[in-house]
Amino acid sequence: MKKLKSYAREFWRYRDLLKQLVSRDIKLKYRRSFLGYVWSVLNPLLIMLVMTVVFSTMFSRNIENFPVYLFCGQLLFNFMNNSTHQAIFSITGNAALLKKTYVPKYIFTVAKITSGMVDLLFSMGALVIVLIATRSSFTPYMLLSPLVIVQLYIFCVGSGLFLAQANVFFRDIQYIYNAVTTAWMYLTPIFYPLEALPQKLSWAVSHLNPMFFYVSQFRDLIYLGQLPDMTTVLSGCVAALAVLVLGMWSFMRSKDKFILYI
């Protein structure tokens, strides 16, 4: 308990560093491009447009208001995918700095996930544009969507910490994880309805895939305009906390050995 308290104090002391690292990621991302920050809204919009054209002509599944359906899933999955892929390199990529100064190492991992979340917030702007363009109705339930994003953020911080520390000792993780996320994407109902899966698989996806918990909550709020059912909310929270504990535990156990391997 005392240890946790001193960690919290340290985190508080370095909170400005976190802010600096996140703002660096965002500043540098679009520096020297003509449209600058406009890209963070335009980019998801264009990708969504391509996917809508592809999937609504190739598959004749009738999902009502497909652009919004697709966008809800894709936004969340992309956030998870991009931020954790960035987080894998958050320790090994900062080796030069970590060898030269003392900084709490998890700051770099948390910063990567947080920059991913800022990107997600920009993309929410694109979502609003899509909602208006498709003449969807706006409901007060939409205001609850930040609660889903918080769950997903915690989930991503946990997995980011785990992946970052594992990658220090076992660099093959980065390649394995590529394959894992590809499989994960197809096992999450992003561009198809859950019912399209065979029964056994659909049971597994809806009970064991954490991304499903978040995507379906988000879709309930934005796409269907209803409250998600409590089991899904609870599963989402439990999964997020469990992964966070796993991530923190593995990270703290090995952080003192990082320096010998980076």
Binding site: R13, L17, Q20, R24, K100, T101
Partner: peptide, 25 residues
Amino acid sequence: GAGFDGNMTARENIFLNGCILGHSE
């Protein structure tokens, strides 16, 4: 300057580096 980021300006780096050393903004 271990914490300097080559793509950022000196002004931005002063803040970044200071925060790495544990100072506040």
